[in-house]
Simulated scan of single mutants.
Amino acid sequence: MDPKVVYETDRLVVRDWAEQDGDRVFDIYRRWEVSRWLGAVPRVMADRGAASKVIQRWSERNQDPTYGIWAVEERSSGTVAGTVLLVPLPEPSDGTASKGEVEVGWHFHPDAWGRGLATESARGAIEHGFRAGLSEIHAVVRPDNTASLAVCHRLGMTPLGRTNRWYGASLEAFLI
């Protein structure tokens, strides 16, 4: 069975992950240059089996049609370039009450960097969220992740400053 397509852009098909994507998931997340920006304590994916487990976990999360962690496939080649996500932000780690905030995010293989794919897929995710009724969407980025900070600016997101609100880390927050 083919994975469900969530949305498409000029160059991209954004779809659910499938088990056959496991080698690419592992190739993306085994790289320190990708994983260093992710999570409170960044770490690389240890083995191919971890990729299968994460695909299963993402598939379970993708049951609500508004939210998901999706594969970004290049239409021209069929190559999975990376991940785009639209997910509820976790409970705040700074002790404040959750306001039901939603996050857009992206993680791409280095062979896909510098071609505007993160911006294009994130713009599509934001449009998807707004069509589903969301009124605002956040992004949170490590302060030294200049590439992702640039994506936020290209998306027209408003900088909100540094926060420790989510993921137990000091992050730059953005809103659109």
Rank of each mutant, 00 (worst) to 15 (best):
E91K: 08
G105H: 01
G105I: 02
H138S: 15
L86H: 07
H138C: 09
R142S: 13
T119L: 06
L85A: 12
T96F: 03
P90K: 06
A122W: 00
L86T: 14
M157Y: 09
T158I: 08
A122E: 00
T119D: 12
G116E: 09
R162L: 12
P92G: 04
A139D: 08
T146S: 09
A132S: 15
A132G: 11
T146R: 15
P159R: 07
Y167M: 04
A169E: 15
V151L: 02
L134E: 12
G114F: 12
G95S: 02
N145Y: 05
K99R: 13
G116K: 07
L171K: 01
W106K: 02
H138Y: 15
D94L: 07
L117D: 10
K99H: 12
V84L: 11
E127A: 14
G114Y: 10
R131G: 08
V87L: 13
E127T: 14
A122D: 00
L175I: 04
F174H: 10
V140M: 05
H109C: 07
P110H: 01
W113Q: 05
I137P: 11
A97R: 13
G95Y: 09
E120S: 00
A150T: 10
R162N: 11
L155A: 00
H138Q: 11
A139N: 10
S135E: 14
V87G: 03
T163V: 06
F108Q: 10
W113V: 09
S98A: 07
H153D: 14
A122R: 00
T146E: 15
A122I: 00
E91N: 08
P90F: 06
H138E: 03
G161K: 13
A112D: 08
N164T: 14
L86F: 02
R165I: 02
H128E: 04
G124N: 05
R165M: 01
A125W: 07
R131N: 11
G95H: 03
G105W: 00
L86G: 08
S148M: 11
H153S: 13
T96I: 02
T119P: 08
P143E: 10
R123A: 09
H138K: 11
G116L: 06
E127H: 10
N164R: 14
S93V: 04
E136R: 15
R165Q: 12
V141K: 08
V104K: 02
K99G: 15
A122H: 00
D144T: 07
L160A: 09
E103H: 01
L160H: 05
V104P: 01
A97V: 10
K99F: 02
R162V: 12
A139H: 06
G129S: 05
N145A: 10
H138T: 09
L134W: 09
H109Y: 04
V87C: 09
N164Y: 08
A173E: 01
R142D: 03
V140Q: 06
A169D: 10
R154S: 09
R115D: 03
P90Y: 08
I126P: 06
V87A: 15
T163N: 07
N145P: 08
H153N: 15
L134Y: 01
G95W: 11
P88A: 12
E120L: 06
R123K: 15
L117S: 13
A132M: 15
A139I: 05
F174D: 01
T163K: 12
P110M: 13
V151I: 08
W113C: 09
E101S: 06
E103Y: 00
T158Y: 02
H109M: 14
L171A: 10
S170M: 13
P90N: 07
A97N: 09
S93A: 12
P88T: 04
G161Q: 02
